[in-house]
Amino acid sequence: MAEMVVIRHGQASFGQDNYDVLSDLGKRQSAAVGAVLRGLGWVPDRLVTGTLTRQKDTALAMGFSQAPEEHPGFNEYDFHDLLHARYDGQVPDLVQGDRKTHFRALRETIFEWQDGAFSGAAETWDQFAARVAAARAFATDTDARRVLVISSGGVIGQLTATALGAPRRQMMNLNLQIKNTSITRFMFSGSNFSLAEFNATPHFSDPESVKLTSYS
Rank of each mutant, 00 (worst) to 15 (best):
T140L: 02
K56S: 08
Y19S: 08
A12Q: 05
V155D: 00
G153Q: 00
R145D: 14
K179T: 08
F186L: 02
R185D: 07
Q127I: 04
V155E: 00
R8T: 13
G120R: 15
G165F: 05
T181Y: 09
N18Y: 13
F198C: 02
L40Y: 11
V21G: 00
A121K: 11
F128V: 04
T160P: 00
N180Q: 07
D78L: 08
F103V: 12
A161C: 13
G154I: 04
S205P: 03
S205C: 13
L159Q: 04
T181L: 06
G63N: 13
T109W: 09
Q55S: 06
N173I: 03
L176Q: 13
R38H: 12
S194W: 04
R107Q: 09
V36K: 00
G10H: 02
K100N: 10
T213C: 08
Q114F: 05
G39R: 15
R146T: 14
S191P: 11
A129D: 09
F138P: 01
F111Q: 11
L60E: 14
T51V: 11
M172H: 12
L22C: 10
L37Y: 06
V5C: 05
R86N: 08
G120L: 14
R168K: 13
S65G: 07
G50R: 05
K211D: 14
S205E: 15
T58W: 07
A134L: 06
H9F: 04
T162A: 14
P202F: 12
G153M: 02
M172G: 00
V36L: 01
E70V: 08
D98C: 11
V95K: 06
T109D: 07
T58F: 06
Y215M: 04
E69P: 00
N192C: 10
G116Y: 06
G41C: 09
R104A: 15
F198V: 03
A163E: 04
A129C: 14
E76P: 01
M172K: 11
T142D: 01
G63S: 12
G63K: 13
T49G: 03
L52G: 00
S30L: 10
P207D: 14
S194A: 15
D93L: 10
E70N: 07
Q11W: 12
W42N: 04
